[in-house]
Design a protein around this nucleic acid. Sequence first.
RNA 1: GCUGUUAUAGCUCAGCGGUAGAGCACUUCCUUGGUAAGGAAGAGGUCCCCGGUUCAAGUCCGGGUAACAGCUCCA
Length: 647
Amino acid sequence: MIKITFPDGSEREYEAGVSGLDIAKSISSRLAKEVLACSVNDEVWDIARPIDCDASIKLYKWEDAEGKHAFWHTSAHLLAEALQELYPGVQFGIGPAIEQGFYYDIDPGDAVIKEGDLAKIEKKMLELASMKSELKRENISKEDALKLFGERGETYKCELIEELEDGQITTYTQGNFTDLCKGPHLPSTSPIKAIKLTSVAGAYWRGQEDRKMLTRIYGVSFPKKKMLDEYVVLMEEAKKRDHRKIGKELELFAFSERVGKGLPLWLPKGTALRLRLEDFLKRIQKRFGYDQVMSPHIGNKELYVTSGHYAKYGKDSFQPIHTPEENEEYLLKPMNCPHHCEMYAIKPRSYKDLPIRMAEFGTVYRYEQSGELHGLTRVRSFTQDDAHIFCTPDQVKDEFLAVMDIIFIIFNALDFANFEAQISLRDPNNREKYIGSDENWEKAERAIVEACKEKGLNARVETGEAAFYGPKLDFMVKDALGRRWQLGTIQVDYNLPERFNLEYTGTDNEKHRPVMIHRAPFGSMERFIAVLIEHTMGKFPLWLTPDQVAILPISEKYNDYAHEVARELDAVYEVRAIVDDRNEKIGRKIRDNEMKHIPYMLIVGEKEAENGEVAVRKQGEGDQGVLKVAAFGEKVAEEVRSMINKW
RNA sequence: GCUGUUAUAGCUCAGCGGUAGAGCACUUCCUUGGUAAGGAAGAGGUCCCCGGUUCAAGUCCGGGUAACAGCUCCA
């Protein structure tokens, strides 16, 4: 007998060799039906795998990430089995479960698998699933594994096996398909009832650009047909939030092939919104002791040679601008830091001057790979809400903490609750990739980790993800489709001050090197607004939204009154109002303006015009009763004030 | 940059070898209305660009360009 401990601490005895599934059965038949995976001593296992010794166990169902993971991992194997039948000779790469489904990377040889083939593969998968094949787990020696997969000509699998340790190698087999895999898996393919293969794309073998591009097939699967239908609806809903679609509908921004790809055009309403966001940050920065500066959009090539950026990115950037002078070259600025370093260097600095905080909404130009461009989230011309803090090494941590405060103020003001924080450290095994001394790197990395701890920020630590000049803390937010985008960033830099030979005189009357902190709470105006659009679906907060009020005259007879009200709201209360003076019925005007997500609608007709009143309607909530124009203006102004005063 | 997909009216899309279509938006007229689509008429297209096949090409083929999904990259 062995002792099994459950998550609530309770214990039960079972015969040795009992499986997770057996244990579930002993609890309830319903649980046995639903359980998909289990963890045994905190290691995720197949529910069919026998347990031989005392263990603590957790059972995972569809609702648990581990349960879904096993389900989708098995689905990936099912996909591979289908491909093996449909495309004899296909070679397999890897086929894992991912956040939302699974994929399999394959090399189909001479065959080409296109999107049009997915339906056929889906059908084959369902056919195979209905055979309810068991998945059999087997330990295999390295030698046997190499022989087995070698005979099948599976060069990718053999490459993986070569890197595994003998004794640690397992295979899973269902039907005629055997895969190198460490699991865990479902006991059989039978729970897989609904499958959708979502896309086919190229993916480099092992994620390395210089290796072969395999064909990757993505899919999702579910235990119930209804869940797939719900998923499809959810994806369609998510697409409606797409900032590219909403940005076009609300006329916030546009792209023009003639202007150039990746070069956004900010339309009046988008510009108004963006400027308001910039003012919001400027206000906060003023409070935190920042000075606003401005620098040109180009800089002499020598500036970037000095900064080191030219050596690293010169070839992949917009190429130099030539002047009538021979040998004179300028670059579109790819970042603002070197300009700010030169501003620091205009005169001798004392420790009494520090910290110096220079902020600039600086537009930069980066020649991003064409395949990387994506709406407003990845563009070739964008504006960073940039600032550089020059401080003494002792001030780094406090400055870092203050920047984190600014970021939290912004995220709170705009309801970005679900952000993730990531600390990016250098790869200690690849030090030549980075500029700067070991000592400085360690100092900087420690400051970041400590600052996060002090703020109680649960940040994921990634080694090897640092910028070449220093470690950083990034804030990531997901878009409508679950893709992660980096927004706010704080980066410590011991390198540029060195390269620009920046100094300050200390209390000891000696010259010292200041530390530089780069930071951008929004990241870029473009990307931030893109994510904001997807989060709000275009229903921006009252203080930010381009049009706060739409005035709807009942008939054309009241157009003059409507315009009068609009003028008064603007002039007296700084409330932004538009007038819908089309020759349409009131029901129509309400519908159209509701769909534009304008927070307030004012309906004005005979009664209102006579009494200097407006009939108020709130977006999504309907009729709110009648108010005097002044009372309404004051109400909206107050609502905006109360939002702004919170920051 | 790489793999795959797409490109028809301002927008969303149908048409897929034989004279370019729908809904919405737009213009004009009728209507002057009270809380989520009033009616009628009209205008609007280099079917992304360049080549090729064909008696005939939005439609088939090749090459560009741009967008979309993913990979790689992201100072």
